[in-house]
Computed example of a mutant assay.
Amino acid sequence: MSPIPGIALLGAGLFAKEAHLPAIANLGSAAPPLRAVYSRSLKSAQDLASAAESTLKLTSPPNIYHDGDPSANLDTLLARSDVGVVIVILPITTQPDVILKSLAAGKHVLSEKPVAKNVKSGIYLIKEYEEKYKPKGLIWRVAENFEAEPGYRAAGQAIRDGKIGKVMFFRLQGINNLDQDSKWYKTPWRTVPDYQGGFLLDGGVHSAALLRVVLPSPVTHISSFASLNKDYLAPLDTINAVVKAEDGSHGIFELSFAAPTSSRSSSGNGFFVTGTDGWLEVANAKIKDGVNGIRITIHIVTKDKNGKILDEKVELIEEESKGVEAEISHFLEIIKGNDGGLGDPWGALKDVAFIQACLDSQGQLVDLGLPGRT
Rank of each mutant, 00 (worst) to 15 (best):
A8Q: 09
F15Q: 13
A16G: 13
A25W: 12
G28R: 02
S29T: 09
S29W: 02
A31P: 07
R35F: 00
Y38G: 01
S39W: 06
R40F: 00
D47M: 11
S50F: 08
E53K: 15
L56D: 10
L58M: 04
T59G: 14
N63H: 09
D67M: 09
G68A: 07
G68E: 00
L74Q: 00
L74R: 02
D75Q: 05
G84T: 04
P96C: 09
V98F: 03
K101Q: 00
S102N: 04
G106P: 07
V109A: 03
V109E: 07
A116D: 12
K120A: 15
Y129S: 10
E130D: 02
K132W: 06
L138R: 02
L138S: 03
L138Y: 01
I139Q: 14
W140I: 11
F146C: 04
F146W: 12
A148Y: 13
Y152F: 11
I159G: 04
D161N: 12
F169Q: 13
F170M: 14
R171I: 05
L172G: 15
Q173I: 04
G174L: 05
I175M: 11
D179S: 15
D179A: 07
W184L: 15
K186Y: 09
T191H: 01
V192C: 08
P193R: 01
H206L: 14
S207K: 13
A208H: 14
R212F: 02
P216N: 02
S217R: 10
S217Q: 01
V219C: 11
S223Q: 07
S224C: 07
F225K: 06
F225Q: 00
A226E: 08
S227N: 04
K230R: 04
K230E: 01
Y232A: 09
L233E: 08
A234C: 08
D237V: 04
V242N: 03
A245Y: 10
A245W: 15
A245R: 09
I252A: 06
I252K: 11
S256D: 10
G268D: 06
G268W: 13
G270W: 14
F272I: 15
F272K: 15
T276N: 08
E281A: 05
N284Q: 06
K286F: 04
K288R: 10
D289M: 09
I298T: 09
I298A: 10
H299T: 03
T302P: 07
I309S: 08
K313E: 12
L316V: 01
S321W: 06
K322H: 15
K322G: 03
V324H: 02
I328T: 05
H330P: 10
H330C: 14
L332S: 06
G340W: 00
W346A: 03
D351F: 01
Q356Y: 09
A357S: 06
L359N: 12
L359E: 12
L359Y: 14
D360K: 12
Q364V: 07
V366W: 12
D367F: 13
G369A: 14
G372Y: 03
T374Q: 11
